[in-house]
Design a binder for these strands. Structure first.
Lengths: 405, 405
DNA sequence: GGACTTTGTTCGAATGTCGAACTATCAGTT
DNA sequence: AACTGATAGTTCGACATTCGAACAAAGTCC
């Protein structure tokens, strides 16, 4: 039950009904392919004649294509339909503190090419490097005009209307107009988003097929700790695109000092830095904001390796992180009642070690038994959630429900 | 950008475009009345002919009516249109721990009659009493068929699909089928919702005219502390209608014992009981769950009165509550980035005393300057937010955006 | 009274769904 | 090989709606 915003609505024209049904057909094909026209008519409880006409349009615009005829026990054999995702492409870019990644993928999220380089902190120089790499990658793998856009994921706050990065502490950016700079360089539309929201989009649009999950939260644990929220089948951005910053909510006013200045933030217990600091027995030290590279020391992957090799202190540091991760997830469960929680980040490689501690943490805080039982799913290894989210930024608008009323 | 749920979608029929535009017209009239057909056509960028036809339908169904002709500097004078809210009615019911309220109101939320009685904890007896009072109230004030439904607000978890109250600790209820029992008694459709969500609905549908606020949170502070969340113009219910339970998120693991069993919940710092306990220097004691009435002792209103009369300890207890209220609001601001926070509950009567403490609490926890500046608006006195929410439960479906795709 | 302006209605063209009739294609039976 | 029954896909007229222009209604200004 949505309220109509009388300052910003979309009225129906004489083609609106067709737009709606065309989008529904496209999504039905996407989730049930291979599928026939007659099958679509049954699923939509609509005449086959209408389906014929809609399919014709979708084939003409190149959204779907006809495959081989299927098999039927009786009667004429159906022509199977498929969504054209294999030869429509997007460039996904993930800018992180240490390294940046550029991936070429099709609309289904399949990887065609992937490269990375050490992140350049100067925005202009970074854009120049990205432009060069993107153009080369597209030229090497595709024909002209096959790439439909660039998805750009950054670790920081983004202003959706202007495409500017308002603040990215890890990169030392304030109010950087990277979207338009990059769009000019590559001559393609560029879509920008922050990391947790992109991960949520990836899960929503490129997750497992048959994943009908309209209410979930994607928690990212990395240098920072944040969340991408999907409720009612929509990404929750908030008023100024900064929803999901659970990382700086306090678990304990007597807790460790956080890099944000406050005490006992969730992030100060669970970020990679926090876990390493706990192991090393020292306080969190800001390593960003300087233009020099970080001191190459122990990484979270190293720590997990040590834990696996029997380092009890390493294991303890990781499990404690898992426990606090669970407490924070419990808070999210109470606040938003998602049907599932996804967790992404390096720490998920140690899920076999921390899973039960996470669950205990949730049990400590979840108000209801149902909430306490909320499934928590770690990101699969090598899944590149941010890059897949960048792809989703380009692909999803072609599949989303039309805006109406 | 919503994802289409392929298991539960609404395709367009040949009347869908009209439905959409009719609903838009209805809402435009609602927010801009008095307004003429020509004005609507301009606002919608549509032909006047279409408006004529839509308005005719809306007049025939009784949704709007023609008023006097307006004034124009030149040309034919316009016929002004109005939404018919004055003679369409709903019964609003608010069941609380101490007393229950029954209100008869029109679709604009105007009060026609209001009565209250001591809450009966036995569900069957309560339904009998409500049935009697509602039928009498409708008979006394209205003709036959004028009341379109009953909105029922309860302090507990509700299963929207079955209308059952899953758990209402204050009433001692578990899995009570109150909606259908009451619907049978009064012969009207009954809509049920929990208190914080109803308050959010009231703000969304019956708030100030011109209140274009698509992202806000309504925090209720009473015996419990909860929140109703509105994002993207929609109430956020979560997977099982229990979103918004911020009250049992922990502010401090070393904090006071909460009635839920955990330590340092937001509620344990800010509920009315918590404030009173702080003043009285004792721990929180569960007064519910017993069938006997609560010991009639000090109320939060008394405490505010004492503070106003110079009782420093009372003032201190209230201000401390305000500070913790602000801290929790800061957490909400980080999590959801609303454009505004509303606060309801008895404590708002002391807003002049606690407002600055609330703001300090927010400043302590809000991550961004924008978040820290989020406006916080206390409910106006005597606003009956829960009852207005109950009215909104009945009225809102007539004005909501049609479900499509 | 006439020119001009604005509101509201009417009507044919364009676009879309709805439902039924029609064609195409297949398996099994005679 | 022809017949039968079933299913897939297309075509076409009826109905619903928007779109745009023409038209009637009702005012102001000179």
């Amino acid at each position: 039950m949505r309220k109509i915003d009388t300052r910003d609505f979309q009225r129906a024209t004489r083609t609106t009904s067709r737009e709606i049904n065309r989008r529904i057909v496209l999504n039905l094909v996407r989730e049930h392919q291979p599928v026939s026209r007659a099958d679509l008519a049954r699923r939509m409880e609509i005449g086959r004649g209408v389906v014929t006409s809609i399919i014709q349009e979708l084939i003409e615009t190149g959204a779907i294509y006809e495959g081989a005829t299927g098999h039927a026990p009786r009667g004429r054999r159906p022509t199977m339909l498929f969504v054209r995702t294999q030869d429509r492409f997007a460039v996904a870019v993930d800018v992180r503190f240490s390294r940046s990644f550029v991936m070429l993928s099709d609309f289904a999220g399949n990887e065609l090419a992937l490269e990375s380089f050490e992140t350049i902190f100067d925005p202009r120089a970074l854009v120049a490097e990205l432009t060069h790499r993107i153009n080369a990658m597209v030229a090497a793998h595709l024909g002209v005009g096959a790439c439909e856009g660039v998805g750009l994921v950054v670790p920081g706050m983004v202003d959706r209307s202007t495409g500017r990065v308002l603040m990215a502490p890890q990169l030392g950016w304030r109010d950087v107009d990277i979207r338009d700079m990059l769009a000019e360089g590559v001559g393609l539309p560029v879509h920008i988003e922050n990391a947790p929201m992109a991960c949520a989009l990836a899960q929503m649009w490129l997750g497992q097929r048959g994943n009908h999950n309209d209410n979930f939260v994607y928690v990212t644990v990395s240098d920072g700790v944040g969340a991408g929220i999907v409720m009612n089948g929509q990404l929750i951005r908030g008023a100024t695109n900064s929803a999901g910053e659970f990382g700086h909510n306090s678990l304990d006013p007597a807790g460790p000092q956080c890099l944000c200045g406050a005490l006992g933030c969730w992030e100060a217990f669970t970020s990679n830095q926090a876990t390493l600091s706990r192991y090393l027995g020292r306080e969190l030290v800001p390593v960003w904001g300087t233009s020099v590279h970080p001191p190459v020391t122990l990484t979270i992957e190293d720590l997990i390796g040590r834990a696996r090799q029997g380092d009890q202190r390493a294991a303890s540091a990781i499990v404690t992180t898992g426990h606090h991760l669970g407490i924070g997830i419990g808070h999210i469960v109470n606040a938003l009642n998602p049907s599932q929680i996804f967790v992404g980040g390096e720490i998920t490689a140690a899920w076999d070690l921390i899973g039960s501690a996470v669950r205990e943490g949730i049990l400590e805080r979840a108000l209801t038994p149902g909430g306490a039982a909320t499934p928590v799913t770690p990101e699969q290894l090598g899944g590149h959630p941010r890059l897949r989210g960048a792809t989703a930024l380009v692909a999803a608008p072609h599949f989303a429900a039309p805006r109406v009323a």
